[in-house]
Design a protein around this nucleic acid. Structure first.
Lengths: 148, 148
DNA sequence: CTATATAATTCAGCGATCTTAACTATTAAG
DNA sequence: CTTAATAGTTAAGATCGCTGAATTATATAG
């Protein structure tokens, strides 16, 4: 493994965190969502057909905690909770349209600083970045598919 | 601004979140830090000589909230809180060595999935990604310096 | 010098999350 | 068919973070 690239990723991810963490925290406060709620929302937006235990394992908390968190989110109209026909002990969790919307907004909020960065790239530099990111995305998707 | 690159960044940042959010949550739970505590720790690791109000503004909460959060972190040996000689109403916040260590560990935890990705890149692809990231880092630093 | 503004802390009270334990419902195993 | 395992919910109690208001200390303005 390339130590150089590892360090460069490290530096880049530091910048990502530095520029998005505060936006994320403020977004949650402004919209009146707790950090666990918003985190669960984002997780569900990216893992379709997730069940209660799955979310609990992912966040490192008990099923009871997730169940109570979800109950509020269902009442707020952010999440739909229905029985899994395959195994009726499971509940299938899906975001409502409003839930999806909040997840999208939070992502935009976290990455809006990138727009300033794109703006000062030349067309050639944009192509260079575009191709590198596309390469990374394809490899990442390849790894995910290999796992399942 | 390039819509293509904007969408590609969007896709890439979704993958970053998808692969790091859970690790972040579990890390906090395992180490027995609350999400606000760990977030504050990470912020302080990247913004040296930050004061109480600054952290409050960044997170969208009152000074009282931050003050109490910090009191616990000082007692845990994560943060040093001292008077600012320039203006003694301000407190200068700096992480202890242990605090820095936790911040580093949390970052490694969030980005460890990237190592698998680096591993399956050819040397040529590694160079391509390295150069693109280096370009982005330099531009981001340029923007930050222009602001101050 | 006095009055005002700013920075941070403390306290009481509220609401949210988490855990453990008990419980219901469904599925799988013997 | 009975028993054991799995998934999720509920309830009680503990802890934590947040707010508003009051307080102290320092700095600035008139």
């Amino acid at each position: 493994m390339s130590i150089l690239l590892e360090n460069t990723f490290n530096e880049w991810m530091s910048l990502v965190t530095k520029n998005s963490l505060g936006n994320f925290m403020r977004f949650a406060k402004e919209k009146n969502y707790s950090l666990p709620q918003l985190s669960a929302l984002i997780h569900l937006s990216q893992h379709t057909e997730c069940n209660v235990s799955g979310l609990g394992d992912e966040f490192g908390v008990t099923n009871a905690a997730i169940s109570q968190l979800l109950e509020k989110m269902v009442q707020q109209g952010l999440v739909l909770r229905s029985e899994d026909p395959q195994d009726r002990r499971h509940k299938v969790l899906v975001l409502t349209e409003e839930g999806e919307q909040i997840a999208r907004e939070s992502q935009i909020e976290r990455q809006k600083w990138l727009f300033n960065l794109i703006d000062i790239l030349t067309e050639e530099e944009q192509n260079q970045v575009e191709q590198a990111l596309r390469l990374l995305i394809n490899k990442a998707i390849f790894i995910q598919e290999a796992k399942s």
